[in-house]
């Protein structure tokens, strides 16, 4: 029973955090078609925002507005300077954002150094949950992520902005012709997406290794999840997170961490090859 609870919680935790990480890319790639290879670097930027707050001796909560600001401002800058010229040219966004990713990695490396940074947990300790002791921070994090997704889901279905984004994604020319400022809406969407990645960085920083190259793993996992789940829907995002996170947890438990990683890669390659439009596609 305890074993089931442990694995269940680990699975839920892994799905939730993967979902949080991939959310930003789902917005930027799934809605705008920008293959943002710098996605992981925005997560990294969020984690370093947390580091800055910690080094300044400020309360950890302040890392959230800082990360949103840093990622939002940087997102605005690269949208204005690079991305807006490349919408609907996914291949070029792929290359350009890759250059941007290198830029961000090297920039952070020059500023903070190559070494691993440690970030203290603001909620240390464990609580008893279903008969097992589980880290408190992880439980709070899961609750936060569930609340975030629920809120987002309702907003996207009900709000006028949600409808406008859907309209722009489906038919940009018609959207502009009925009076939607697609350039502005795209920019706002892009900034929201990368800021979400930054938020994921802040929330995960105490739990993961923080260093300039940390973004790479998040980037690839995120792409794989989107490919597995399919683009453009929240359900697909969560399914993809569940499959990738579940495979990792299960294979790692049976064999070891490396096998889990290899298993995730293999599943991803198979999906990319056989079902590039995701598990729900009817192709």
């Amino acid at each position: 029973m305890e074993l089931v609870a442990t694995y269940g919680l680990n699975f839920a935790y892994s799905t939730a955090t993967l979902g949080l990480i991939v959310l930003g890319l789902a917005v930027v790639f799934g809605l705008l078609g920008v293959m943002n290879m710098a996605h992981g670097e925005f997560v990294m930027l969020g984690a370093y925002s947390a580091l800055m707050v910690q080094q300044a001796g400020l309360p950890y909560v302040l890392a959230i507005p800082l990360a949103l600001f840093v990622c939002g401002a940087f997102g605005w800058l690269i949208e204005w300077s690079v991305i807006r010229h490349l919408y609907r040219r996914p291949f070029d966004t792929f290359l350009a954002t890759w250059g941007i990713a290198i830029l961000m990695r090297k920039g952070v490396e020059v500023t903070f150094g190559r070494e691993y940074q440690s970030i203290d947990q603001s909620l240390p300790g464990t609580v008893e949950f279903f008969g097992i002791d589980y880290p408190a921070y992880r439980l709070v994090l899961m609750a936060l992520i569930v609340a975030l997704f629920a809120g987002l889901f309702v907003w996207y279905q009900r709000s006028n902005t949600g409808a406008r984004i859907k309209a722009m994604v489906e038919n940009p020319e018609l959207a502009a012709a009925v009076g939607i400022d697609t350039a502005r809406l795209s920019r706002a969407t892009f900034i929201a997406g990368v800021a979400t990645a930054g938020l994921a960085g802040v929330l995960l920083a105490p739990l993961v290794r923080v260093e300039p190259y940390m973004g790479l793993d998040y980037l690839l996992n995120s792409f794989f999840i989107l490919v597995v789940g399919g683009l453009g829907t929240l359900e697909g995002l969560l399914t993809g997170s569940g499959i990738i996170g579940g495979a990792d947890v299960v294979i790692s438990a049976i064999f070891d961490k490396t096998a889990g990683y290899l298993g995730v890669l293999t599943i991803s390659i198979l999906f990319l090859w056989l079902r590039p439009d995701g598990i729900f596609s009817r192709r």
Binding site: M35, P90, F91, F94, L220, F223, F224, V227, T258, Y261, L262, L265, T266, S268, I269, L272, W273, L274, P276
Partner: peptide, 25 residues
């Protein structure tokens, strides 16, 4: 299976290279 030169082929080669790295390791 896929006509065109979309990004999926690129991502597959990337994943294969990561798989190779992990195996070599």
């Amino acid at each position: 299976r896929q006509i065109g030169s979309g990004p999926y082929f690129s991502l597959i080669t990337l994943a294969l290279s990561m798989l190779g790295f992990q195996l070599a390791n």
